[in-house]
Amino acid sequence: MSAERTDVTGGSAGWTDPLVRELKRSMPPGALLGLVLDCDGTVLELGLLRVAVGFRGRGHAARVLARLCAEADARELTVVCTPTDEYGADRARLEAFYRRHGFTPVAPEDRLTEHPWERMPQTATPTTEHQEP
């Protein structure tokens, strides 16, 4: 992915920088959020999602990731990431976390980027009302 961030309309940084600022402000006092995003108009790269150690296990990361996925879905973007055990995370737990949010591991030959996990855009299934004859 290029170093320059662009949104689906081609503008530099576009919607990701304001979203990162908003999500960081949404954290409780003292709860730091590490969040790095990059977008090329097709793929939203989640470079880092990290909640301060003393605030883990309280649903903050799940809330942030759900919002990122919703924003990506609205723009029909695939979200990519690389779960690791860096920053004190348990990789198996992190992979389970990403699976709960719709991410799956992808074979190297099928990857959109160098990231091994992807979440395809989710679209709402239209419902049809049952009509009486």
Rank of each mutant, 00 (worst) to 15 (best):
E4Y: 00
E4S: 12
R5H: 15
R5F: 06
D7L: 02
G11P: 00
G11T: 12
S12D: 10
S12M: 09
S12K: 10
S12F: 01
A13H: 09
W15A: 04
W15I: 06
D17H: 09
P18S: 02
P18E: 04
P18A: 02
P18D: 04
P18M: 06
L19V: 15
V20P: 04
V20M: 03
L23W: 07
G30E: 02
G30H: 07
L35H: 08
V36N: 10
V36W: 02
L37N: 06
L37D: 02
D38F: 01
D38C: 11
C39P: 05
D40S: 00
G41W: 01
V43W: 00
L44W: 06
L48I: 11
L48Q: 14
R50S: 14
A52E: 04
A52R: 09
V53I: 09
V53T: 13
G54I: 10
F55Y: 15
R56M: 03
R58S: 07
H60Q: 12
A61L: 08
A62L: 04
R63V: 07
R63A: 14
R63D: 10
L65R: 05
L68G: 02
L68E: 05
C69V: 15
C69K: 02
A70W: 00
E71C: 05
E71N: 06
E71R: 02
D73T: 12
D73V: 13
A74Q: 10
R75Q: 07
E76N: 13
L77M: 04
T78A: 07
T78F: 01
V79G: 03
V80Y: 02
C81D: 09
C81L: 15
P83Y: 03
P83A: 03
T84P: 01
D85E: 14
Y87L: 15
G88P: 09
G88V: 13
A89N: 15
A92R: 15
R93M: 10
L94S: 06
L94M: 11
L94Y: 09
A96H: 10
Y98I: 08
R100Y: 00
R100V: 11
H101S: 05
P105Y: 07
P105T: 15
E109F: 10
R111F: 01
L112M: 10
L112E: 09
L112K: 11
T113V: 05
H115T: 12
P116D: 12
P116Q: 09
P116I: 13
P116S: 10
E118N: 04
R119A: 03
R119F: 01
R119K: 04
Q122K: 11
T123W: 00
T125I: 11
T125V: 13
P126N: 06
T127W: 04
T127D: 10
T127C: 11
E129S: 12
H130T: 15
Q131I: 14
Q131N: 07
Q131M: 09
Q131H: 08
E132P: 08
E132K: 14
